[in-house]
Amino acid sequence: MNPVINVEGVVTRFGERTIHDGINLHIDENEIYAILGESGSGKSVLMKEMIMLLEPTAGEVTVLGKILSEINFDDAQALRSDWGVLFQFGALYSSLTIAENIEVQLKEYTKISQSMRNKLVRSKLALVGLEAHVGALYPSQLSGGMVKRAALARALAMEPKLLFLDEPTSGLDPIGARNFDALIVELRDLLGITVVMITHDLESIFSIVDRLAVLADKQVVAEGSLENVLQSQHPFVEEFFKNEYTKERFKDKVKDV
């Protein structure tokens, strides 16, 4: 089976500063894949390279069979409609209602009527657990958890094959975070999408992630299932996963490490 995303030998430099020095990883269809790493390891940079907001200095990123460094304008536009992105703080347009936020891509990439757009907006709101009346509200009128769900509804507007999430549970209370995790799993199973998420949330990592990559020292220092990653002896992996709090909180999963 070919991966839906393949990153091969990616080098990223900003001036004299090297962020990535030979990143290799692959993401398979229909999995929830996490990217984590130490501060400054380039997690968000890597995600931006996957969604064509940045271009790596060297190496190749292939998404849904398209090599991004070789893609033409029309194919790039088509590919963008195959993914949805939830940025860390939602990134909703503050001057637009929630319904108008969800409609942005529908207006840009489709020719469907206003009445059909209204139906799609309501369906996307329902999909993420928001009532129809929320569509008439502005982002400033929503709680943090509702903003995340509204931004997720927007990310799902075009029925994407890929869903990118940047720290999806940050800023949420523990109950809200776990409810959001459950929503991600439900959407993956219902829609058959592939989810790529940047996260440091241990609860998410231990409960919903299928595979993950750990970035440190400008490279991927561990990749695979949680069981595989926990075998790594890299200092960052040791510090992140094998401290006393983590061992106690998740003792059923790290007891043999």
Rank of each mutant, 00 (worst) to 15 (best):
P160N: 04
G145W: 04
D173V: 00
E167S: 01
G176D: 13
L142G: 09
Q77K: 15
V85H: 01
S69M: 05
L68I: 09
L137F: 07
G84N: 07
A91W: 01
A76V: 02
A182D: 14
V85F: 08
R80K: 15
I112A: 12
V128Q: 11
V104E: 12
L92A: 02
A182T: 14
R80T: 01
L127V: 01
S170I: 05
R149H: 07
L156V: 00
L125N: 07
P139N: 06
L191V: 01
L191I: 00
P160E: 04
S115Q: 14
A157Y: 02
M158F: 06
L183D: 09
K119H: 11
I98R: 09
S143G: 09
D82Y: 03
K119Q: 14
F89M: 13
G84F: 04
K119A: 14
V134L: 11
K107T: 13
T110C: 11
S94W: 06
S170H: 05
L187P: 14
L79N: 07
Y109L: 13
S170V: 02
R178Q: 13
K111R: 12
S81C: 14
A76Q: 09
P174M: 05
R188M: 07
P139T: 02
I67W: 04
G90E: 00
M116G: 09
L191F: 02
H133N: 13
W83K: 10
I112C: 14
P160M: 04
L86D: 10
S143Q: 01
G145V: 00
S81N: 08
A76R: 13
P160A: 03
Y109C: 14
S113A: 05
N101K: 00
K161Q: 15
S143C: 09
S123C: 10
L92P: 03
L142Y: 00
G84V: 02
T110P: 12
S143L: 10
I184W: 03
R117T: 00
T97A: 10
T169Q: 02
A182I: 08
L86K: 03
I102Y: 01
M158Q: 10
D82R: 15
K107G: 15
Q114N: 12
D189K: 14
L190V: 04
L137I: 00
V147S: 04
P174G: 04
I102P: 11
F180L: 06
G65K: 02
D74A: 15
D189G: 03
K119R: 13
A76G: 12
N101Q: 06
F73Y: 15
A155G: 06
A157D: 08
T110V: 09
A76E: 10
N101I: 01
G129M: 03
L120M: 12
K119D: 14
A157S: 14
S140C: 05
Y138S: 05
A99D: 06
K148P: 11
H133S: 15
Q88H: 08
P174S: 09
Q141C: 02
N179Y: 11
L156F: 04
F164T: 09
S143Y: 03
